[in-house]
Structures are given as C-alpha cells and as structure tokens.
C-alpha cells in the first residue's frame, strides 16, 4: 500500500466518521429534523456533535502523546498512561470528590483542577527520577511508572474506603473515563492541547527520527538531546494533563494508535505524526460510538471499552517483543 493511498483512506474515514457518527444513537435522526427547531435538533448540535468531535480530538491527543513518548524512550510500552500520569490524575480527582466536592476555582470545578495538578505532579516526579540520572534508561523509566501506578492506586483505594457510597460511585465513574461532553466548551479546551502537541511533534520530527534510531547517532548528527527531550516531555505532560482532567483516564489509545501507524506507514515521523493523529481519533471515536450505542439507552464508559481492547493488545506487544 502506498503512503498516498493510506493517507487518503485515513482522511476519508475520519471525515466520514465525524460527519456520520452523530446520526447514530438512541434517538434516530433524519436530515430534515436538523433544520427544524426541536429537541432532536438540540440533541444533535449540543450533545452528539460535541461528543463526536471531542472523542476524535481526545483520541488524537492521546495517540500523539503516546507516539512522542514511545519514540523518545525507544519503547512501545512507554506511554503517558502506562507511566502513571493518568493514575496521578485519578488520585487528584478522587481527592477532589472526597474533600473538595463543593469548591470551585474560578470557572473550573475542583475535580478538573485537582486531576490536572496531580497529573503534572506525577510527571514532575517521573521527570526527576529519569533525568536526574546521568543516562536516562527506559527500563528504569518503565519501572518507575509501575511504582507510581501502584502508589496512586493504593492512595485511591484508601480514599475510596473512607468515602461514602455516593462519593465512591462518583469516583468509580470518573476513573472509567467519559466523553459525554455537553456543549462546545470542553471541546474548545482540548483544541489547544492538540495544537500544542502537533506543532511540537512536527517541529521535532527529524529529532524524533534520530532519537528513535539511537541516541549516540542523534547526538553525532547534532540533536540537542537534553533540550529536545525536555521540551517534548513538557508538551506531552501539559497536553495529557489537560485531556485527562476533562475526560478521565482513557487508556491504551496512546499505545495502540502509534503502533498501528508504524506498521502501516513506517517510522519516519513526518508521516507517522499525522497517521497516529488520525488513527487515534478514529479508534477512540469508534470505541466511544460503540460504547454509547451497544447497550442503548444505557451506555458503557468508554474507558472500559479501550481497556478491554488495550489489555490484550498490550500482551500481544509483549509476546511479539520477546518472541
């Protein structure tokens, strides 16, 4: 398959899905309903479209973030989710639900502020652990990620244990990840995160190629490794923190999308970046549409779907790596 064909296919699929998926759902739509003022019209424009856009953008952000970490650390398992950033965000959200449920910071609810802050704190810890060493080792980074995951999970379980039933069920719901946006303001919050990642990734596309080949070769070609790694780390952290604060943890899109992208289009980042973006958007949009329709009128949290897809995929990668 040629690159041109693959890109045209991805663009067509993306456009097709974003345009047609709002029509899928509990309330069926016909085109003429959209032009009459009605409840259906409101549902379509204020719920369905923001949700479809939000799912695509979230998937795109998670895929780009995953791709950047995977290339930087030369390991398919090194994504923000597996390194514990989402666990950190979840701990923040759980803390907010238990202790600060009624607090608002300017326009932002406590859950968003706390999950954002804790995601950044987790990244800072990860950053200190990795970059304080003379040579950043991926093995060490992955182990540090597991340790952070365990610590956060422990703290979450403790807070859940002392929480009331209703608090506890809110916590569980948040941790399953959700894209049920209402209106466009959450979507608008995600767009800067996507732009930040896309611009940074494209700016460093050759550095990423070289870094993913070998760090000595990258150095010899003139890549300022420290600067590049720090800038990318910062951009990914910020984008993921914004996203997780709005959607809750949604795992594995960030691992699957770039992996499939590499298989389809190769490792050159100038093509891999747009491919990962579109694949991530598509995977999460399809997962979410499935999640909200399969047991309609009820819906499955999208995080459940991606985890059910991603867990086995994770094992698949591990087996292929060792085999």
């Amino acid at each position: 398959m040629t690159k041109k064909f693959l890109f045209s296919a991805l663009i067509m699929l993306s456009l097709g899905a974003v345009i047609s998926f709002p029509f899928i759902g509990e309330v069926p739509f016909s085109l003429d309903m959209l032009f009459k003022e009605s409840v259906e019209q409101t549902i379509f424009f204020n719920i369905r479209i923001p949700r479809v856009l939000g799912a695509y953008i979230t998937g795109a952000i998670l895929a780009l973030a995953g791709m950047l970490f995977q290339s930087m650390f030369r390991n398919d398992l090194a994504t923000p989710y597996t390194l514990g950033i989402s666990s950190g965000a979840a701990l923040g959200a759980v803390m907010a639900i238990k202790f600060f449920a009624t607090v608002q910071f300017l326009y932002y609810p406590a859950i968003q502020v706390f999950s954002f802050a804790m995601a950044l704190t987790t990244v800072a810890v990860l950053h200190l652990l990795t970059f304080s060493r003379k040579r950043s080792s991926t093995h060490f980074l992955l182990l540090a990620g597991i340790a952070i995951n365990f610590t956060c999970t422990g703290a979450i379980l403790f807070i859940q244990y002392i929480a009331s039933g209703s608090e506890s069920s809110r916590m569980v719901r948040w941790m399953m990840g959700s894209l049920d946006f209402i209106g466009y303001s959450p979507v608008l919050k995600l767009i800067p995160a996507l732009i930040l990642l896309l611009v940074t990734a494209l700016y460093f596309h050759r550095d990423l190629d070289l870094l993913s080949i070998d760090s000595d070769i990258a150095h010899s070609r003139g890549v300022n490794i420290k600067f590049t790694e720090k800038t990318l780390f910062f951009a990914v952290s910020l984008a993921v923190a914004i996203t997780v604060a709005n959607t809750g943890p949604i795992g594995f899109v960030g691992m699957i999308a770039p992996h499939v992208g590499r298989k389809l289009i190769g490792r050159g980042h100038i093509s891999l970046i747009p491919a990962s973006l579109m694949l991530g958007g598509l995977i999460l949009l399809v997962s979410d549409t499935f999640a909200r329709t399969v047991i309609s009128p009820s819906e499955i949290p999208v995080g459940v779907i991606t985890a059910l897809l991603g867990g086995p995929f994770f094992i698949f990668i591990l087996i292929k790596k060792s085999g």
Binding site: R206, D207, D209, L210, S212, I213, G266
Partner: peptide, 21 residues
C-alpha cells in the same frame, strides 16, 4: 540501533545539521 528504518531514510537524516525543521 533501531533497525526498522529504511536505509534511504537513514541517509537522508544525515543532513540534519544543515536543515531547519
């Protein structure tokens, strides 16, 4: 070294020091 790159791409990357992104 990561061997999944094409030789052609790898050689193109040797012009890195002279290129803006």
């Amino acid at each position: 070294i990561e061997g999944d790159f094409f030789v052609e791409t790898f050689l193109d990357l040797s012009r890195y020091p002279y290129k803006k992104p």
